[in-house]
Deep mutational scan, measured.
Amino acid sequence: VPQRAWTVEQLRSEQLPKKDIIKFLQEHGSDSFLAEHKLLGNIKNVAKTANKDHLVTAYNHLFETKRFK
């Protein structure tokens, strides 16, 4: 089981690129989880459509539901 890579403050910070969060989610989330949160596909394309709040919610949801690969 992966550990949380970032704190809530870090997740919301401008310093953390959306692409980093997407990469983490794609590496650790199950396909059904990723599909549900519309996070499947090319990281660049996902970054265009997903806002930061959406990614933070998905990140927290992944750990709450433990839907890891």
Rank of each mutant, 00 (worst) to 15 (best):
Q3I: 12
F63S: 01
L16M: 06
N60T: 12
N51C: 09
K19R: 11
K52M: 06
L34H: 01
I43T: 08
T49V: 11
T49E: 11
K18W: 03
K44P: 11
L34C: 05
A35C: 15
P17I: 06
I22A: 03
I43A: 09
V46L: 13
K44W: 14
K44R: 14
Y59W: 03
H37V: 06
R12M: 15
T57W: 13
K19E: 15
L39F: 03
K52W: 10
K66H: 10
T57C: 14
H61R: 13
K19Y: 13
H54G: 11
K48I: 13
I22H: 01
S13W: 03
L34G: 02
L34W: 01
K66G: 12
Q10Y: 06
K48N: 12
K52F: 06
V46H: 04
N51W: 06
D31A: 13
G41W: 04
P17H: 14
V1N: 09
F24L: 02
T65Q: 12
S30I: 05
A47H: 08
I43H: 08
I22W: 03
R67N: 10
Y59G: 01
L40S: 09
F24Y: 09
D53A: 08
K69G: 06
L40N: 08
K18T: 12
L34E: 00
K48V: 12
R4A: 06
Q10L: 05
A47I: 13
V1H: 12
R12V: 12
F63Q: 02
I21T: 01
V8A: 11
G29R: 00
L34V: 04
A47F: 06
E14F: 08
F24C: 05
A5M: 15
H54M: 13
L34Q: 04
N45A: 14
K23T: 10
K18D: 08
A35T: 08
V8G: 06
E64G: 05
H61K: 10
T7H: 04
Y59N: 01
L25T: 00
A47S: 14
P2G: 04
A58D: 01
T49L: 14
T7I: 03
G29A: 12
H28A: 11
L40F: 10
Q15L: 12
D20T: 14
Q26C: 05
A50K: 10
T65A: 12
A50C: 12
T49M: 13
V56L: 04
E64K: 08
K52E: 04
K19D: 15
K44V: 14
V1G: 08
D31L: 13
R67W: 06
E27R: 10
V1S: 08
I22S: 01
H54I: 09
Y59A: 02
T7D: 14
Y59V: 03
F68R: 02
L62H: 01
Q26N: 03
L55R: 01
R4C: 14
E64L: 10
Y59I: 03
G29S: 09
I43L: 10
K52D: 03
K48D: 14
E14Y: 09
D31Y: 15
P17W: 04
K52V: 06
E9F: 03
E14D: 14
K66I: 04
L39W: 01
L34A: 02
Q26V: 06
G41V: 03
T49R: 13
N60Q: 12
K23Q: 11
E27F: 07
T65W: 11
N60P: 00
E9T: 04
Y59F: 04
T65K: 11
K48C: 12
T49H: 11
S30F: 02
K18N: 10
K52S: 04
S13R: 02
G41Y: 04
K23A: 12
L16I: 15
P17T: 10
F68S: 02
K23G: 07
Q26P: 00
D31N: 13
H28T: 12
D53K: 06
F63C: 02
L39G: 00
L25E: 00
N60K: 06
F68G: 02
E9N: 04
L34F: 01
I43Q: 06
R67P: 03
F24D: 01
L62A: 01
K66V: 05
G29W: 01
F33R: 00
L11W: 02
Q3S: 09
N45Q: 13
L40W: 10
R67S: 13
E9D: 07
V56S: 05
W6M: 05
N45R: 14
Y59C: 02
K69Q: 07
E36C: 11
T7N: 07
D20N: 09
L55K: 00
K66M: 11
H28V: 10
G41R: 07
E36M: 11
L11A: 02
H61W: 08
A50R: 07
L11I: 06
V56D: 02
V8H: 07
A35N: 09
T7E: 10
V8E: 15
A35G: 08
H54L: 10
S30W: 03
L25W: 00
D53S: 08
I22P: 00
E36R: 08
K44S: 14
P17M: 09
Q10P: 02
